[in-house]
Amino acid sequence: MTLVVTDLTVDHGAIRAINNISFRVEEGQLAAVIGANGAGKTTLLRTLSGLTHATGGSASWHGTELLYSKPEKLVRRGVSHVSEGKSVIPELTVKENLHLGALWRKNSDEAHATQEMILDTFPRLRDRLDQQADILSGGERQMLAIGRALMSKPSLLLLDEPSLGLAPLLVAQIFQSIRALTSQMGLTVVLVEQNAMSALKIADMGIVLNRGRIAASDSSVHLIANPQVRAAYLGY
């Protein structure tokens, strides 16, 4: 199982957001995608999950062609996406948000086991199961959004800025949880982040996007050591 993206190009009308990029993420790896605002990170994830249509190229996961398919189909093939911003439904309870991710799963015992694992990792959600999600703090919402995506039993997890709007201490904590959970479940992860350093620290590999093109792609250890990347994206 490998995520293979080849010559991918995505346009928003006249704006070319992703310009002919190719990369691979091996099974079980966590890839961090970093880059400035407007670099095309969100567009890349939305294209991989079927929300946005590509202009050209191909992308496949585990033999499934990802482009030109619908998100509700792809989630059944193991692709789960936590979109940018707090990807929860505030009008529903915490439990309903989680349950939503597993609606299409036939095996409810299995879904229940997944839920227990998520609640063990994010105990704050357990205390609030029957409350409406709009009372959750930013961090708790992010935990819930990730939890909802995991309830769909993914093999490929796409995360768009899980650190958005969180206090630095919480960022470290969430990232540790993401790493622990995805390793435990054997997931392949594409993690889009502004918080480049924190992301690279938990990642196996990193991809630097610049105006829709790949500026650098390497193991995260190498990227952190790369002087140009440090200067441009890690801020020292």
Partner: peptide, 24 residues
């Protein structure tokens, strides 16, 4: 019911519902 949950999710946030696998 599950159908009810899908109905509410689709109404409030169709994009999240689709990502969760609901045939909106």
């Amino acid at each position: 019911t599950n159908v009810g949950l899908a109905l509410r999710a689709s109404a409030y946030a169709p994009e999240i519902a689709r990502l969760a696998g609901v045939k909106v």
